Amino acid sequence: MNTSPAYSLAQLTHYFLRLGTFGFGGPPALVGAMHRDLVMTRGWVTEDDYREGLALAQLAPGPLAAQLAIYLGYVHYGVLGATIAGVTFVLPSFLMVLALGWAYVRFGGLPWMQAIFYGIGAAVIGIIAVGTYRLTRKTVAADALSWGLFALSALATVITQSELLWLVLLAGVIYWLVKAPPAFVSSGRTSFFVPVWADWLPATDSVLWQLAVFFAKAGAFVFGSGLAIVPFLYGGVVKEYGWLTEQQFLDAVAVAMITPGPVVITVAFIGYLVAGFAGACVAALATFLPCYVLTIVPAPYFKRYGRRPGIKAFVDGVTLAAVGSVAGAVLVLAQRQLIDVPALLIALATIGLLIRFKQLSELSLIGASAIIGLLLRYAHQV
């Protein structure tokens, strides 16, 4: 662990509070923002540390952006930094989702949400497209193997509409075998612990207990972050338990997309609809606690062995696949969000503005797009 960080715990806290408050776009945008801000702009984290964190977040189950934030907090400040980064990153969106959950229950739905999400969603596609392009340029080397692994992962994500762990691992192994043919294996071995206690817990009729067990499974066993957890949640809360209707579940996903921070925060909205404030807290804690543990437990091994040639090559291969999955996720999200010409124009205008004005605030684009979405829907109704 480095002994002389270029930033304080207060600065770390402020950064992740701000990212959690204003960071729109889900995993592709958030991991790109951390790279831009912490590696390229501030120089707080090295490129190698970032790659290790992204690789670990991709290998372990749970929300990708939250795990990366936890790991980057760990780099210089250990468990305390990891805890601060994780809590401050998730807390703002959790509070926003609580407020939206209260309004949803109080006023019988959020019909205005779809109009706002129409504009915001289109702008978010543009934001994450630019962020992913910059991340790809920085990460993917100019050789055919790197681009091949990147393209294969992106294509697989588009086809399956989820991120494939086995493909990520395979990319790491292939890159390792080609770039650093091993003379040893065992000395660089990293152990990953995935708890399986969730299936052993006794059954109970308590709704809060059922929420805790179900969302612990979501946090501990679902790979692929926002893309993968949505169908898992749908199968549980709508089909298996019947906690929400189809429309309520779609509204929960929309809430997650129009609020900043990790998309997985939708679990708090679902928990609130099922069991109020206590349900929101249980659902959020049960989802994020496993990913916290599964990040800080293997982190020391990554820090200790990550610079060895074989491990570094494996991490580089995993990173290529991870960035490819992010690029594929952008295409999947665009296909779902850019449903007509106005939405496509909003996305293209966002891309053009971000490329032309590199210091332009993403928040201003989000706000303008929300207004445009409301105006377009209102004009359509008239």
Rank of each mutant, 00 (worst) to 15 (best):
G242T: 13
V213D: 01
S225A: 15
A322I: 06
K312I: 01
F288E: 00
A151R: 02
A368M: 11
L177G: 05
F269I: 00
Y305N: 10
E47M: 08
S186V: 11
V178I: 13
L54N: 09
A228T: 05
G131S: 14
A256L: 06
Y234W: 14
Y305I: 15
P298R: 02
F357K: 08
W166V: 14
A60E: 01
L363Y: 03
E47Q: 14
A212I: 09
A180S: 15
W243L: 12
L320W: 07
V124Q: 06
V194N: 02
P298I: 10
T350E: 01
I351Y: 04
G43K: 12
A278D: 10
V318P: 01
S4V: 00
S364D: 00
F314V: 08
R336I: 01
L363F: 07
G276D: 06
A154C: 12
G373E: 00
W243M: 12
L145H: 06
A65E: 05
V31I: 15
A280Q: 14
I70M: 11
R307S: 15
R51V: 06
E47P: 02
Q58R: 00
A327I: 06
I270E: 03
I311D: 03
L152W: 02
S8R: 08
T190L: 15
I339R: 14
G317N: 05
Y77Q: 13
L64T: 05
M34Q: 12
Q11W: 04
S206E: 13
S361Q: 05
A69V: 06
A216H: 13
G324D: 07
V75S: 10
L363G: 01
A218V: 11
V315W: 06
F117D: 13
E240K: 15
G188V: 10
V158S: 05
R308Y: 10
T319M: 13
I120Y: 00
A252I: 12
G261H: 09
P28W: 04
A275Y: 05
T259M: 14
T245L: 03
E163H: 09
R18K: 11
V282I: 15
A321E: 02
V90S: 00
A370F: 11
F117H: 09
Y15Q: 11
G20I: 06
V207P: 06
L145N: 03
D143R: 01
R189T: 10
W147S: 09
R36Q: 14
V323W: 08
P5W: 13
V237I: 14
L165V: 14
G261V: 12
A144K: 14
V341Q: 11
A69D: 02
G53K: 10
Q210R: 15
T160F: 13
G26M: 04
L348D: 04
V255E: 07
V90K: 00
A82M: 08
I355F: 12
V267L: 10
I270C: 03
L289C: 08
R137E: 08
T204W: 11
W112Q: 12
L348S: 14
V178Q: 07
L56V: 09
L12I: 10
L59C: 04
L54D: 05
V158Q: 05
Q335W: 11
V222S: 03
S146V: 01
L289G: 03
I120R: 01
Y71N: 03
A321S: 15
E52I: 00
A343T: 11
L170C: 11
V297R: 14
